[in-house]
């Protein structure tokens, strides 16, 4: 037991060495100010609008925007593949000979504007067909003749 106690005493002496391990000079001079700065930064962050906080999170963790970009790419790729495989989509968006596209885009009609049906905007029936409404019976075409 006494040997044990003697060893404990030697161990206690050796442990005294730990008390002499000190951080770099001046370390504690800035310690509290850096904690206060971090507390202030945290408080400011809480008062910030959610969008700015969200952007800050993205900035501090680059993995998040990378994941977001990758998922957008996957989504885009999936969209393209489904458009190509689905004939309904393809007839509207994928096939340039579609009438709908041709109606909107003269170049889609073989690049010949003459092939596109012209609409006479002065004719009530044509205007009606353009806006998909019935011709107004009260509407009369104005005449600019002098009556001679």
């Amino acid at each position: 037991m006494s040997e044990n106690e003697n060893n404990f005493e030697t161990l206690r002496q050796l442990l005294a060495l730990k008390r002499h391990e000190i951080p770099p000079p001046g370390y504690f001079e800035d310690f509290s100010s850096s904690i206060i700065a971090r507390i202030r930064a945290g408080e400011t962050a809480q008062k910030m609008p959610w969008l700015l906080r969200f952007l800050q999170i993205l900035e501090s963790r680059p993995a998040y925007p990378a994941a977001l970009a990758s998922s957008l790419c996957v989504l885009l790729l999936f969209g393209i593949v489904s458009v190509e495989q689905n004939p309904e989509f393809a007839s509207v968006w994928g096939n340039p000979s579609s009438n709908y596209i041709a109606d909107l885009n003269p170049t889609a009609a073989g690049g010949n504007p003459a092939m596109i049906p012209m609409v006479d905007t002065n004719s009530p029936s044509d205007t009606a067909s353009l806006f998909n409404t019935q011709p107004n019976p009260l509407f009369t075409k104005p005449s600019f003749s002098t009556g001679n």
Binding site: T10, R12, Q13, L14, A16, L17, H20, E21, I22, P23, P24
Partner: peptide
């Protein structure tokens, strides 16, 4: 990642005895 030992360690009675 240990800190340095200060110069007082050499004069610490416990360490001197040790």
């Amino acid at each position: 990642s240990l800190n340095d030992i200060d110069f007082n360690a050499e004069h610490d009675p416990d360490l001197v005895a040790l």
